[in-house]
């Protein structure tokens, strides 16, 4: 019998308090009646009501969702391709440069990516007249560029751990490579592709710095709106907005985690039963 690691339990409790106390405090104060964000003035949901009639917030949220959806979808397609190229084609010209290119945006400071993209877009417009000013298009292109790396990593690692003989078996049974891709490879890695899409979606929905560089007049995404408000200090309506977003995403992730956990448990049970039945 091992001794209980009291020290580790203590650190874990402190660590999770560190993670969650600020968020809990923020949620609590979002129901504060007082206009002063930090002084408790009784329970109220009026800030939530105000938020729903704030056209600026709603516009920003709608813009962010549209950009996130589009950029995540394109980034997932490109990232899946890149992941397959890296995991499946062992030799092609420029492979080293390619793998470097894919991993660079993961570690590149956002200010550098931001400034280089905006200067690039300005230069491009100067030379060929496209993109016409900065806004939806340039933000989306920038988001695709940095989030495709994340999709690539997720897809590549799933492919690397996949048994290649499954693909060979499909080919052996008469499927040409493209058929193998659609019949076998893509269905098997589909959870990774979905995870990659969700990751790209939330990254886009959350991005401040690169968006700040590549946006134009009239394209204020939700994070940019929040950033400009937060600079001025803590307000109860920001608390309410933050609470809605955190709870929405939190519930979504927790639910996804729970469903995955349950599927895994069911799978384990199936395997156990199959072994038991054979005995």
């Amino acid at each position: 019998m091992r001794r209980r690691p009291y020290f580790l339990i203590f650190v874990l409790i402190l660590g999770y308090a560190f993670f969650y106390v600020p968020i809990a405090s923020m949620i609590f104060y979002s129901f504060n009646k007082s206009r002063l964000a930090t002084v408790w003035g009784g329970f109220s949901t009026e800030w939530y009501g105000k938020l729903l009639t704030n056209q600026q917030v709603l516009d920003a949220a709608w813009l962010s969702l549209r950009i996130a959806f589009l950029s995540a979808t394109i980034a997932t397609i490109l990232g899946t391709m890149a992941g397959m190229a890296l995991a499946r084609f062992s030799r092609f010209r420029g492979r080293v440069l390619f793998s470097g290119l894919v991993s660079a945006p993961l570690v590149m400071p956002e200010v550098i990516t931001g400034i280089s993209l905006v200067l690039f877009f300005i230069g491009l417009e100067f030379l060929i007249g496209w993109p016409n000013g900065r806004g939806f298009t340039t933000i989306t292109l920038a988001h695709i560029t940095f989030s495709l790396s994340y999709v690539t990593v997720v897809v590549q690692s799933r492919l690397a751990s996949m048994d290649r003989s499954v693909e060979e078996a499909a080919m052996d049974l008469g499927s040409k490579p493209l058929r193998v891709l659609f019949d076998v490879t893509l269905p098997i890695i589909s959870p990774a592709i979905i995870a990659g899409w969700l990751l790209a979606f939330t990254l886009s929905l959350d991005d401040v710095v690169i968006t700040a560089f590549t946006n134009g007049p009239g394209t204020t995404t939700l994070p940019l709106y929040i950033f400009s408000k937060v600079r001025l200090g803590v307000t109860p309506d920001m608390n309410a907005l933050a609470t809605i977003i955190v709870l929405l995403v939190g519930t979504g992730v927790a639910l996804a985690g729970f469903l995955m956990y349950r599927a895994e448990k069911k799978r384990e049970r199936d395997v156990q039963m199959a072994i038991a039945a054979n005995k």
Binding site: V21, P22, I23, S25, M26, Y29, A37, T38, T202, L205, D206, V208, P223, I226, F227, V230, G233, V234, M238, N239, A242, I245, V246, V249, G250, V253
Partner: peptide, 16 residues
């Protein structure tokens, strides 16, 4: 997964 910006914001509320 939840917003980076909002988590920073939560701390601003605590540190004030």
């Amino acid at each position: 997964w939840t917003s980076f910006l909002l988590r920073v914001y939560a701390w601003i509320g605590l540190l004030g």
